[in-house]
Design a protein around this nucleic acid. Structure first.
Lengths: 126, 126
DNA sequence: TTTGATGCAAAGTATTTGCAATCGG
DNA sequence: CCGATTGCAAATACTTTGCATCAAA
């Protein structure tokens, strides 16, 4: 499959890279739409997945892999378990490398991520 | 709110603790239903959230916190980004403790988790 | 008796998909 | 031109919620 350039894809990548918080597909759609009003939701989701496959954006997947980060360097995140927003997060004690104990044929490991969770200042505790 | 015992809740916790793979609410519903055919999906979701608040089950949250683990000890997981199943995973280099650099009032950290991702042996590569 | 918990069904939220039209190389 | 990409809309997947009823203490 020969990948072409397209205006929507360029805009999606640029807008994602501008953000410090890491949006879901639909949230990024709302942002990109301010620039390309005719863009469709499906296009945003399709391109985010394509960009992820190309390694040009990072996806924090779990359940549904639905948070994207324009910064592809490995770094920990903080996730608010109430509002579900995700931020970059600094932590000490992050190891240089973490490796699977066994390299068998059951799991084909591509990478890993570290997620801190809790509540952000905008979310009241239960 | 005074928490009572109930047969559905007991069955949900027991069935979850039996599993090695970590189901979503609807998957656990299918399992518990074999034992309590009249149980409803809403009951399973409500109880999983209650058990999580009590610290009796672990939730791997992200986006939607929808994978539950009956083993509440801290351990890394492997997530297949295609079929979205989640397993326990052994890795070396896991630090004893990882800590936030700043303890400010923006984030109230409750814990963290490490997720390896990639493809499992049942999922073909793209 | 009190009120927490349930079953059911409808609604809500996020994402994916089919298809004809469009655009890039 | 050819086939990758799009917009649109319908479909799907998973989770939450309202409410009348049931049941634990």
């Amino acid at each position: 499959m020969n990948i072409r350039k397209s205006k929507p894809r360029g805009a999606i990548l640029e807008e994602l890279q501008k953000l410090k918080t890491h949006p879901r597909g639909d949230e990024l759609y709302d942002i990109v739409r301010r620039r390309l009003p005719q863009i469709s939701l499906g296009t945003v989701y399709r391109n985010l997945d394509l960009l992820r496959r190309q390694g040009r954006v990072a996806a924090i997947f779990c359940g549904d892999f639905n948070r994207y980060d324009g910064d592809i360097s490995s770094h920990p995140h903080f996730l608010c378990r109430q509002c579900k927003r995700l931020w970059d997060f600094e932590a000490s004690g992050i190891p240089e490398k973490i490796e699977p104990v066994r390299d068998d044929d059951v799991f084909q490991v591509e990478g890993h991520y570290i997620v801190f969770y809790g509540l952000c200042d905008r979310c009241p505790s239960e």
